[in-house]
Design a protein around this nucleic acid. Sequence first.
RNA 1: GGCCCCUUGGUCAAGCGGUCAAGACACCGCCCUUUCACGGCGGUAACGGGGGUUCGAGUCCCCCAGGGGUCACCA
Length: 478
Amino acid sequence: MNKVKVRFAPSPTGPLHIGGARSALFNYLYALKTGGDLVLRIEDTDLERSRREYEEEIVTSLRWLGLSWQEGIDTGGANGPYRQTERLDTYRRYTEQLLAEDKAYPCYCSEEELEAERQELLAAGELVRYSGKCRTLSAEEIAVRAAQGIKPAIRFQVPDSKEFVVDDLVRGRVVFHSDNEGDFIIVKSDGIPTYNFAVVIDDSLMGITHIVRAEEHLSNTPRQLMIYQALGLAIPQFAHISLILGEDRQKMSKRHGATSLIQYREMGYLPDALFNFLSLLGWSPEGEEEILKPEEIAAAFSLERVSKSPAVFNLEKLNWINQQYIKKLESTELLSMVQPYLAASEHCQEFEAYDRSKQLLIIETIRDQMVCLKDIKQLIDIFFIEAEADDEARELLATGSAEGVFDQFAAGYPEADAPGEIKAFLKKLVKDNKLKPKDVYMPLRCALTGQMHGPDLPNMISIWGRDECLRRLNQARK
RNA sequence: GGCCCCUUGGUCAAGCGGUCAAGACACCGCCCUUUCACGGCGGUAACGGGGGUUCGAGUCCCCCAGGGGUCACCA
């Protein structure tokens, strides 16, 4: 068995989206599992839409997710260049070969002309495919058009009545008939190859053994098979993974909210959590545990367990997974990861005024409520805002039943006020006054925070310390 | 419309002829508890429809329906 070599080949026409990331991830996992290599190639033959900054963003996104590759755009390798626009000479050689062997021909049809034909066929309910008009152009006719300065596209001549079968690793055997395909363009009139042509040459020349890509490419596969055959190139194995759908069961697109990886990074999803979540979309491990580290996923991965049906992107599950990862973080780690999000808070300076141990205590006090890192911004508010008591809290305070407790709280506030000491202190207040715990806690909570609900009270008291607590208490009693 | 793919709870998804049809998220309830969360325990909820094959079908075959993809000088 030869060494496995897979590739991820995005077009730099936008940021890396969830679907692309999942394709990249499956390739990465397959390479890792089989001890193979991963190639990152950039398919930038769409001159109009491709942009270098997107290419950079894609690389950044992939690295952030935790992927790495052996060959590619930024790492180099023996099969470069890895940007298609830098491989034009190579494509040209193969184009000439096909032309010389009469397996391709120049097409002088204008786009308007083609569009009109397409509409006609569509309206007539007939098979929509190129008529083959230019297939039989004589040398003279070609010369005339060339003399007029018309730049031709090059079309691949589709063989008649042949079957093309894909033995897909996830879908099984899929058969296509060549009669359903019209002669398709392999080189645009500007000399740039189209996707279906370039992809075959590159995959072949780069020694790709397995093509793992999204299902939307399944129907492109017969065209690619024709080119492999015409050029006498070895055909790799295919594995078409199902699409990721939005909540409305349509293919994920911008209108489904956050769809680029960068957006998830910005919201404070952890790369390992997203890695984990994405791996569970269309694949499942054998065991029941779903929270798995990248290494564990790679070790368990196999194409046999990849699902054929499309998966709906479920944000709630992602949130839960992210929460699990946040929970596992050391407080010190979490504190440093949260820094950029803290900077966005209006209470950033106040937070930083606390010493490190108190900062860590704040983090520990609210971490269980954090779904993603950006949540820190709202979660720390309660420590700093001076909001008026809400209705519920005001009502409870209005009974005045806890005035005695408040006095004792102020008078007996302990010298050492770590959470443990505060807890003991509150317990003593409960006991001394023969009250129920909640008759001590709730009034204090309302007085100090103005709300009936919030994080652990002893922790909050400890964080504020004596002076701030008494200040808030007095404020509330006015 | 042609071609192709898909179809187990709301969502992800196990199952690869014989199970009371796993598990996770979400939801609901109970417990823990000063509250909200967290956590623990429990619960509601599914094989798209119709024909076959078989002693036996979610699992195999056919038809239909629904969903999706693709038919570009985009990838």
